[in-house]
Design a protein around this nucleic acid. Sequence first.
DNA 1: ATGGGGGATCCGTCTTTGTTAGTG
DNA 2: ACACTAACTTTGACGGATCCCCCA
Length: 943
Amino acid sequence: MKRPSSVDKIEDSGRLTNISKDAVGRLIKRVKSRSLRGLNKVDDSYLQKCDSESSSSSMLDAALRRTVKKDEKGSNGEAIAVIPSNSGTRDENDELEWEEGSLPVLNSVNSSQERTINGLTVEFDVSPDAAKGKRIRRATAEEKEVAVLVHKVNLLCLLGRGRLFDIACNDPLIQASLLSLLPTHLLKIAGAPKLTAKALTPLVDWFHRNFHVRGPDDSKKLPSFALASALEAHRGTAEEVAALSVALFRALNLTTRFVAVLDVTSLKPDVDKPEFSNPRTGKAGSGIFNSSTLMVPGSVHASVSASNNPVSDEKGGDSRTSIHRRSNILTGKLLKDMSVTHESNGRVLDPSTSADQDSVTEGGVVKKSGGPKRKGDLEFQMQLEMALSATRTESSERIMNLNGAYVDNRPSKSSPFKKLKAVGTDESPVSTSGMSTAVGSKKVGAPLYWAEVYCTGENSNGNWVHVDAVNAIIDGEQKVEAATAACKKSLRYVVAFAGHGAKDVTRRYCTKWYKIALQRVNSTWWDAVLAPLKELEAQATSEIVHFEQGASSRNNKVEAVPSANKKIQICEPESAYVTVKKDDEVCEDGIEKNAKRSLSNSFAATRSSLEDMELDTRALTEPLPGNQQAYRNHPLYAIEKWLHKYEILYPKGPVVGFCSGHPVYPRTCVQTLHTKERWLREGLQVKASELPVKILKRSLKHSKVQKDEHDEFAEGDQVALYGKWQTETLSLPRAVDGIVPKNERGQVDVWSEKCLPPGTVHLRLPRVFLVAKRLEIDFAPAMVGFEFRNGRSVPVYEGIVVCTEFKDAILEAYYEEEQRREAEERKRKEAQALSRWYQLLCSIVTRQRLKNCYGDGTSSQDAANTSKLEDSQNKPARSSQDNSKSPGSKPEKLHERKPKAAEFVPTKDHEHIFVLDEETSDGLNSTGTKRCQCGFSIQFEEL
DNA sequence: ATGGGGGATCCGTCTTTGTTAGTG
DNA sequence: ACACTAACTTTGACGGATCCCCCA
C-alpha cells in the first residue's frame, strides 16, 4: 500500500486501521472456528447439511458410526450393524469403543449404500429426504454473545472509518483543488446569507456531472489518499465521491457532515455466516472493512476515458468524451423522469418538467441527446423506457429509484419487465409517496453515503438537509429508507461525522424505528460510545456556523476560477477550515474572541438540542404499524392480544388506533404484574384492600406445593398477580428490645436493603454469627438468594441481621476474633512448615550418610541410588509410621543379622523392610537407625 | 407472488428454603 | 454427643424467539 509518508497522523491512523483489521480478522476466524465446532458438536444438524457428495470423509465416518449405532438393534432388519472384528462379545462398556472405533471410509455416498466388510453387509441411509426433515440448529448463547461482540467491533471499526473520511474531507489540498475546479458563478453560494436546499441545486448538479461512481475497488488506500485519487480521476467509490462532495461543501464554508450508513454484521448469529464466505469479501480480503457501496457505476463504460481524461471542463463538459456524455444523458433522463413522476417528497434536480423524453439536463441547460450512440446504448434506453412506463402504469405516484442512474446496462436475456421489482414494501407512507425501486434490483447498490448540509434558510431555525451528490438528490431523506430496503440493506446505524466526532441520526432517515431498534446493539453501550463523539461533532458544527457569518470576507480572497488546463489549482494555500480558524485567532482580540466563541457554542447547543428534539419527536410520532406482529415488541404501542403473561393494560386507554380490529394502546399503559412475594423483593408490599388484577393458573408441579396453603387467591392451582399501583412501601415490624423480627423460617430475606426490618443492620461477614452467638446477641441468618445445587435450589446465606445497637460491639469483637483466628492460623502454618523442613533435612542427612557408606560403586549402590530418590519423596511417611510402630513390635529374624548388601538384589517392586540397627539414648530423646536389606537406612528420633 | 397469522418447535430462563455419611 | 463438611445428583415448566405452513 502506498502511503503519503509526510503525513504522520494519517500514518498513525493507517497503522491503527491495520491493527484493528488484524484484530477483527482474528475474531472472525475465531467465530468461524467456533461455528464449525458448533456444527461438529451437533452432528445431526450438520449431517443434514452434508451434501452426499461434498461431505468429507471424516464427517461420513462419523455419520456411519452414528447410523450404525442407531441401527444396530436392527428392529426391522433393513439395517444391519457393523460389528467390529473384536466385538464378538459386547457389553455395556462398549459404548466408548463404538464412539472411537473407525470404519473404512466409503468414497461415494448415495441415498442407500451397501458394502461388504469381512462378509458383513453394511447398509445405511443418509438420504437427503431424511436430512431435510431435520430442523436447523439454532444458535447457542455463546454464539449469540460472539455475534454481539463482532457487531460491536464492526461498529467501532466503521465509526473509525467514518472519522477518517471526515478528517480527509478537511484536507486543505483536496478542498482547494475542488474549489479550483468549481465554476465562478457557483462560488456565490458561499456568501448566501440564508442558505436553502434549493440554492444547493446547481452546485450538486455540477458535482454530479463531474464526479462519477465506480465499483468498489480492492485497494486499501487511506481515506485522504483515496480522496485525492478520486479527485484526480473524477471518479471513485460511492464513499469517496460522497466524501468529495462533503469536502466541496466545507470548502465553500457550508456546515456539512459526512453521513454514512454503518453496514455492520448482524447482531444475530448464523445470519452472517454466508457473509463470511461471501466471495466478494473473501476476494477482497478485507472482510468487513470493505464496506463500500455496491453501486453499479453509471459510467461503467467510461473507465478508460476517465483515466485518460481526468479533468473535466467546468463549462458544461464540452471536452468530455461521448461516453461521459452518454452516462450523463442517461442520468439526466432518469432525473428528469423522477421530477416528472414525483415531486412531493424532496426536491429533485432539474426542475424542468419538459415531457420531451430525449431532452436531458446538463448544467441546468436542456440539451438534445444527439450524441453518438452505440448499440448497447439503444438497447439500454429501450429497456429503461419500458421499465419506466411499466412503473408508471403500476403506480403513477411512485418515483424512480434513487439509483436509477446505476442500472446495469448490460443486455439482459430476460425481459426488461422482469427486472422490475416494485419494492414499495411496507405500509409506510414513504412507500406510497417515496421512490419506486422498479429499476432497483440486486444489481443496484443502496445509497450508503451522503452529506448533510445545514441550511439556515430552512424552517425558522435552520435545518440539516440531506444532500446525496452521488445520486444528485437533495432533501430526499424520506427516500433513503426505501432505497436501502430495496437493496436488502437496513438503516440500522446512520451516523453523521464532523469535526472528528459523530452523531447518530438514524431516526431522521427511518420511519419504522420499531423494526430498526431490534437490530441495533444495546442502546446504553451505543450511547456511551457516541457521547464523546457527539460532543466533538456539536463543537465542530458550531464553529463552522460561527465563522459562516464572516465567510464573505474569506470568499473574496478565493479567486478560484478553475480552468480545464489546471489539474489541481491551489488558489488558497490553506484550507477553508484552517484559514477561518486563523482569521479568528489573528483578527479578534481576546475578549471578543471568547465572547464570540461562547456565543457560537450557545448557538451550537441550541442547534444540537433542537436536532435532538426533532429526532425525538420523530420517534414519538411514528405511524402505527399495519400488522399485528409488530405490536409484540413495539416500544410505543401495544395491543392487548400480544401482552405477555405478566402484563396488563392499566389504565386501559386511550385508544390511539386500531389494527385488524384490535384497539391499539400506548405502551405506557402496559404494566408489569408480580406476585406478592415478588413485590417484596422490590421492597414493596401489596396494600391490604387490593384484589389481584390477574389470576394465573399455576403449573401442576407448583400446585402440588401450594395445595396445603390457604391463601385466599393463591390456592392450589392459582397465582394472584398485582400491579405496582396496588403496592406501597414495605413496612416490616420494628426491632424491639434487641430482638430481630424474623420470618417463619427464623431468618431474614435480604433481597435488598429495603427488605431489612427497621432498626436492624445486615453484617455481610463470614463467621460473624459465631461472634454474635458468643456475645449472646439475637441475630437472624441473612438469606440473600438462591443457587441451584445438586438438582435443587438451595438458599444462600451471607452474614447475619442484628439490631443496629449491637453493630459496633459485634464488629469490634469480630475483628478481634478474626485477628486471633489469623494468628492461630499463622501459628499452625508455621508449625506445619517447621515439620516439613525437619522431614526434608532428615532426608538430606540420610542421603548423605548413604553416600558416605556406599559411595564406592558396588552393585548395591545402584540399588540405593535408584531407591533413595523415590524413597526420599515417598517413603518417609511410611518409614515414620514404621518407626512409630517399631518400638512396640518385635524385630523378628531379620534383626538378628546385619544385612549384607551384596547378597541382596532388590527387585523393581521392592519394598523396604526396616529392622532396628542401632539405638542411642541421650536421656530425653532416643535416636536410632533403621536399615533395610537393600542397604537403605533411615535415622529416626523418638520423642 | 407475497405477507400475515398462527401452530410447532426449540432454547433459555425461572424456579427456589435437603439429606446423609464421615470427620473432628 | 455434637457440629461441621462434603457428597449426593444433575428439575422441569414455561416464555419467547424463530421457523414453517396455510390462507387471504
